[in-house]
Write a protein that binds this DNA or RNA. Structure first.
Lengths: 238, 238
DNA sequence: CCCCCGGCAAGAGCAATGCTCTCGTTCTTG
DNA sequence: CAAGAACGAGAGCATTGCTCTTGCCGGGGG
């Protein structure tokens, strides 16, 4: 599919990759706000204007990095998803959550790029929505598999009508045979997961929780049960 | 206590307030990244260097704005807490959550300032930790009052030992008679609330959930039940 | 085979930024 | 009342994103 057409194109993609690599390095070192085009150009032995042949603006470069970051965390989640294919649903869910958290802790600046404040005036380009949903889809996949295996508790407090409609449209788009109410809970849990991760990455748990691993695993498992995944006997309902 | 000593001090606090006000205006208009000292100075009819008499650096200005934002959202939460003094715990919890969300949606850039990516190299100064915990304390207050009223389900899946230790220390610091396990759940729910809010403010629910109000209320109520607040009959446990 | 057109890097330059330093002025205080 | 601190203005430095012009150089069409 990606046949190398000529030396010219190869050189172009090489340089593009080198720019992104160096940019990611500087990003990890000092954050998005301090990422300067001139800086990466300098490090690469080019002149700043040359970079504009590859990225039309600094924001475009950032967008590329954002997509890469979404893909990286999404891939981590999917790897955990696949690795836990046979496991019990709660364990599998927790593993996916942990993969996300571990990636975020290992790449805090990239995490900030995708789940922190959007850069300047910046509205997320359409190209980011696909990669952005990979983690959510991985979580939903856990639930869907559990549903198929009959390990899903589908009852719960009633979900508002309007939400059910939204979520039914989503189910349609995804082509999943999940009950709408469960999907609604999964979407909520998806966002809540990033609350847990964000607090930890941005240091809000400092001096509050020290045993972060245990805390996170416990919270992730509770989230799993909240969406209805297999419950161990005698843990829910007084 | 705060007696005005002389015209000089009064002028100083006036100017300081004007700077913060203008800065907040520009912050709301175009975000933290585009907030420039020169810009607010220009708008105030001063010269940029004069600003440095009031804030030693741009980051100090941002820190002041951060503290103000934490206080604003914390105050909103506390108002909801007080307003719901007699209400049933789940409703009161949900009201506090909604207050946080409404404030965040009304002030997205200030929200991004406090719960988005930390600025450059920036480690949260000690002065921010107090205001930063006001929302969390309001949530915990709901739980504590429910506990005192006997409307709290204190059983649940076992919380890991290490987490219990951390949380016991926290309870000590707060002087609250809450079971440690409940406090642990409350801390988790606190962070998860900001997952929900953040996703909405930063647009991750775009084209996924349209009925955001209903969705949020539902999710907040589920969070309330997760921490053990009064449950309506027949909604938990298959 | 050559040649020439298009992609490319370099450099200068513009407007803007954060921050520093100096210089008079003005208000506070001893 | 006079010394000293606080203050505003202005110039200046290094840096940033981005544009424009100028040449170079290599690969595909003649």
């Amino acid at each position: 599919m990606t046949v190398i057409r000529g030396a010219r194109e190869r050189a172009r993609s090489d340089v593009t990759a080198a720019i992104k690599e160096e940019a990611r390095r500087r990003l990890a070192a000092e954050g998005a706000a301090r990422l300067s085009l001139r800086g990466v150009a300098r490090e690469l032995g080019m002149v700043s204007s040359a970079l504009y042949r590859y990225f039309p603006s600094r924001d475009e470069l950032l967008t590329a990095l954002i997509i890469d970051a979404y893909d990286a965390v999404g891939e981590a989640a999917e790897r955990a998803l696949d690795a836990g294919a046979g496991a019990r649903p709660v364990a599998r869910w927790t593993a996916v959550c942990r993969a996300v958290r571990d990636w975020a802790l290992a790449h805090p600046h990239e995490y900030a790029l995708i789940h922190g404040s959007p850069v300047p005036g910046y509205a997320a380009p359409q190209a980011t929505v696909g990669p952005a949903s990979r983690v959510g889809l991985a979580l939903i996949a856990v639930v869907a598999d559990a549903h198929a295996a009959g390990a899903l508790r589908t009852s719960g407090p009633p979900v508002p009508e309007a939400v059910l409609r939204d979520v039914a449209a989503l189910r349609e788009r995804l082509g999943l045979p999940l009950p709408a109410s469960v999907l609604a809970e999964a979407v909520a849990a998806w966002s809540q997961l990033f609350g847990l991760v964000g607090f930890e990455v941005f240091g809000q748990f400092e001096r509050v929780i020290d045993a972060r691993d245990a805390f996170f695993d416990h919270a992730a498992a509770r989230l799993a049960r909240l969406v209805g995944l297999e419950e161990l006997e005698g843990d829910s309902g007084r």
